[in-house]
Design a protein around this nucleic acid. Sequence first.
RNA 1: GUGGCUGUAGCUCAGCUGGUAGAGCACCGGGUUGUGGUCCCGGGUGUCGUGGGUUCAAGUCCCAUCAGUCACCCCA
Length: 439
Amino acid sequence: MTRPTSISGFPEWQPSQRMVEQDILDRLRSTFELYGFAPLETRAVEPLDQLLRKGETSKEVYVLRRLQAEASSEDDALGLHFDLTVPFARFVLEHAGRLTFPFRRYQIQKVWRGERPQEGRYREFLQADIDIVDRDTLPFHYEVEIPLVIGDALGALPIPPVRIQVNNRKLCEGFYRGLGLEDPEAALRAVDKLDKIGPGGVADLLMTTAGASQAQAKACLALAEISAPDASFADAVAALGVSDPLLDEGLAELVRVVEAAREHTPGLLVADLRIARGLDYYTGTVYETLMLGYEKYGSICSGGRYDNLATAGADRFPGVGISIGVSRMLGLLFGAGALAASRQVPTCVLVAVPNEDSRPECERIAASLRGRGIATEVAPSAQKYGKQIRFAERRGIPYVWFLDAGQVRDIRSGEQVDADATSWTPPADDLRPRILGAS
RNA sequence: GUGGCUGUAGCUCAGCUGGUAGAGCACCGGGUUGUGGUCCCGGGUGUCGUGGGUUCAAGUCCCAUCAGUCACCCCA
């Protein structure tokens, strides 16, 4: 049989990496719950029409089909969800009667997209998503809160510092409207490419795809180039001399987001009027997040305000949410050698086995340590002690227990002390694997 | 999904214009009838991504495919 190989876009971490991931998920969960978000898991599949409802390109959705199924009815076709926001919107509509609003939930699950994989881009990946929805109307202050939660959540991780870039759809659309542009959506898409194709490229695109005149393109670019860590961006926008009610509304909102973040975590957030976001369902604040030093990898966490995602008949559930690309974040940092676990296994203590007759006694030692929360395993065979120490060393297990000597050895320092299995405790730092990264 | 680049040992790589594979590190065994990491001696551990083709002969040339990566697209 030929050796199996990996499948493009479906990453599998090594156990030591999975320990890092689990640690990170624990911390995210902890922060989310600290803010009162309730856990939710939705099924992996949604009806295809639900998934494609919001203009998603159908090509990137994996469709579910049984091997034996006849190539027939596409009405009941199922697809794997490509994000957690759309399934959540469906869940809210379906269970609105049982939920209390405003409803805030976090959801950490795999999602699937049929895109061409690259570094940090996968076909199966993990997202950690938070959303707040309310019935009929959603107070604006939740758009202020979301980036603060994320700032805390990411700030508690052993990753480089992050910068959340924020913009507001109302601001952009109001500006474009005030400018007299026909197609604000096209203008947004063009402006979004500023980093990639530069001002000249964006100007061309604005004129060819958004029907902008040279003057209008110039104004759009001037807007897009505005960026500030505080409310000063509002003056810069005002100086462009465009007036529109929606623009004013967006400006006021963005000022509130920026100022609140400045108080909560200075340096966390910056108003960046080039941020557009491809998704068309955003209607207010939009967020993107870069890791400092890893800007070229793009956003690891994005989201925004949406007003029409969870809507059915007269029921409207506007929401705001953001999603951390856990797999992307980890993949990039693993690849850069910027994140690792201090050992390959959870084991803290290896009990050396002097001879097989003593194995039961070794197991008793191990049980005693485990009983006090110390991860312990017993050596696989009664080899020479050197070999057993090596077994521990190769896995990064910090301590080896010697039954006959009644001692435990820190194999990193070589320090060996008398120890009693009913009372010995390792330093807190050694109890579990440490995560080595930029924290 | 479209196009480009890459694919040799666990890792980093060498292998010229075709002549059945090498280095460093890692790893394994021994020196050390039992407390490792230094040192000494010994060991290549490999379907040259995979499958075809050309050839007397393919790691090397051709085709396909898979995987990785980059750009487009899109986005976490």
